[in-house]
């Protein structure tokens, strides 16, 4: 029997949580270096959710959010989606550029900055997975979209809908002064990659 998403419980969740924790730590450090100020983080939370219900937890289909999408490949394959609510991305850009964005949909410079932040945050995660597991993982250039939450989340929902009804969500909270940045990561390894990942982490014991 192959690995199923429904098998994701107990020790597997703990392992993913620990990876998420270290990934978030790396992310906070990289962000802190980039903006040259101290960034605090909370312990991230991890949830396994029904794909068709993921929109609800973000606060509604029509809420405008920023999505940064990245695919990873080599020893394990899959995609990752970072979702920032509008307030968090406004805060991030305020920290970076020293002023609030003027245009609701941001200018090219700001979009490119978000792309870079998505890149840094995602690679922090991927690096922590890679360091833990000794797997080689490369990541693609990130793509940014600012649109309705429902539309953006249909991407992971569809991608995952082909193999499972469940999806992994890691929620991160970073803080710089009074500016809170809440990032939600959807981690979507393809189903074979779970096997590879857990095996190289030494936790897959069913064979």
């Amino acid at each position: 029997m192959g690995f199923q998403i429904n098998d994701l419980k107990g020790i597997y969740i703990d392992v993913l949580k620990e990876i998420g924790n270290i990934g978030a730590g790396n992310a906070a450090t990289s962000l802190s270096k980039m903006i040259n100020t101290k960034v605090d983080m909370e312990v991230p939370s991890i949830e396994i959710l029904d794909t068709e219900r993921i929109v609800e937890i973000l606060g509604g289909e029509e809420l405008i959010v920023v999505g940064v999408y990245i695919s990873f490949f080599k020893d394990i394959n899959g995609t990752m989606l970072l979702i920032l609510d509008k307030e968090s991305s406004d805060n991030l850009l305020k920290i970076l550029f020293g002023k609030k964005p003027e245009n609701e949909f941001y200018n090219d410079m700001e979009i490119s900055a978000l792309q870079e932040i998505g890149n840094i945050l995602s690679s922090s995660y991927i690096n922590s997975i890679s360091a833990f597991s000794n797997l080689k993982i490369n990541i693609s250039v990130p793509s940014v979209s600012i649109d309705m939450a429902g539309s953006i989340l249909s991407v992971p929902a569809i991608e995952y809908g082909q193999i499972s009804d469940k999806i992994i969500l890691i929620e991160n909270k970073l803080k710089e002064g009074n500016n809170e940045i809440v990032g939600k990561f959807f981690l979507m390894p393809d189903i074979d990659s779970y096997r590879v990942l857990f095996k190289s982490l030494g936790v897959l014991i069913d064979e």
Partner: peptide
């Protein structure tokens, strides 16, 4: 039927 993100790899999924 929109394409929300522009990534060229694995065009199969993205052009869903």
């Amino acid at each position: 039927g929109a394409q929300m993100f522009n990534i060229s790899i694995k065009s199969n999924t993205l052009n869903i």
